[in-house]
Simulated scan of single mutants.
Amino acid sequence: MPMDKPYFLVLKDTQMGGLDLFMSQKQGINWSVPQNLGYPINTQDDQVALFITADGQKGYYSLEQDTGERYKKSKLVEITLPNSLQAKIQATTYLKGIVTDAKTQQKLSAELELVALKPSQTVGKFLSDAKTGQYISVLNTSGEYALFVNKQGYFFKSLHFDFSQTHALDKVLNISLEPIQKDAKEILNNIFFATNQWDLQPQSTTELDKLVVLLKSNPTLSVEISGHTDDVGKDADNLILSQKRAKEVMNYLVNKGIPSNKIKAEGYGETKPFVPNTSDENRKLNRRIEVKFL
């Protein structure tokens, strides 16, 4: 359970009687003193195993009642949580989508890895369904994420998104995987540079290391690493910057054991935009590193 969410537990209560549901919350490195959820959730009977729905509005628990015999009688109870309790519960948000073959649209079973970028750490690994291609994962905290998708015989896909819990909406990312073949290309969405700089930022290593694994598993293939910019600044400066960034990526791969004769680094400046340079969002998409199989 995420450490910033309420934690529900069952304790013996001396005032209301029986087993009651309590709530405790993380406070720094400690937990708060468990608080009885009170009536009408708790009564003189035993309440156990509270489950809260994803929207944080309803709850279900098992009501254990004495029968006067050897065994207790259990009943599933549905409740609408009091507003005071709903305010303390963060609604669950999901990352979900469908993985398909980019050429045939066939649904694919693929390995997915969700990585929080600041700091860089894996928060989940899961599979998409072989029949439907669907996947789903819980997004516990706000921040920047990378999603890596791998399947043997395909170029791995990397996606980057900034998730804000203030909107509490599910994030939907449908993913198309390109088969590994000549002229197949992919944008590396999790390669980061400072403005007008070509030094790789630390959070770029996760994606680059996955590219290293891919190239080592396909040793007969050669690749082109291409750098691209938006249209801000002088054409000549953008061309030089894109060349230096592509070369920096190539140097990383060579230092990780990829033969230099298998890699070609090219800079195209602003000459090959991915989308029109008509907005800040589009310009961000045009500042990119691409990999192409030769």
Rank of each mutant, 00 (worst) to 15 (best):
E270Y: 04
L241E: 03
L9E: 13
K26N: 15
N218W: 08
M16D: 13
K262F: 09
Y7H: 10
V77R: 05
D199F: 03
S32V: 01
K185N: 11
N174F: 09
Y268N: 06
D235A: 10
Q90A: 13
D101C: 05
K26L: 14
D129S: 01
T14I: 09
K256V: 03
L159F: 15
S176M: 10
G28S: 06
E248N: 03
L177G: 05
N251F: 06
N261T: 02
L81V: 02
N83K: 15
G269Y: 01
N282V: 08
S109C: 12
V99N: 05
K210C: 07
G233T: 00
L112D: 03
D66C: 10
T206L: 10
Q65N: 12
E113Q: 13
N286E: 03
K73R: 15
Q197N: 11
T122L: 10
A194Q: 11
K216G: 08
T166R: 11
A87M: 07
Q105K: 15
Q27E: 14
L188W: 01
E78D: 06
Q105E: 12
Q57A: 14
Q152A: 14
D4T: 08
T93N: 15
Q65C: 07
P34I: 00
D129M: 10
A49E: 14
L76H: 03
N261V: 00
Q243C: 08
Y7K: 06
S24W: 01
N261L: 02
G267N: 04
D45I: 00
D46N: 13
L147M: 04
D237Q: 05
N218H: 14
Q90N: 07
R245I: 01
I136R: 15
L85H: 08
Q152L: 12
Q197M: 05
Y268L: 04
W198R: 04
R245F: 02
L177S: 03
K157D: 14
T93S: 15
L50P: 11
F148D: 06
G18W: 03
S32T: 14
L37T: 07
Q86A: 08
L37F: 03
G233W: 00
D66H: 13
N189W: 01
K284Q: 09
G38F: 05
T67L: 10
S279F: 01
V48R: 14
L294H: 10
S142C: 10
N150S: 13
N277V: 00
L108F: 14
N286I: 04
I98G: 03
Q134W: 08
I79W: 09
E64N: 15
F156A: 05
M16K: 15
D199W: 02
Q203L: 08
Q106W: 04
L37I: 06
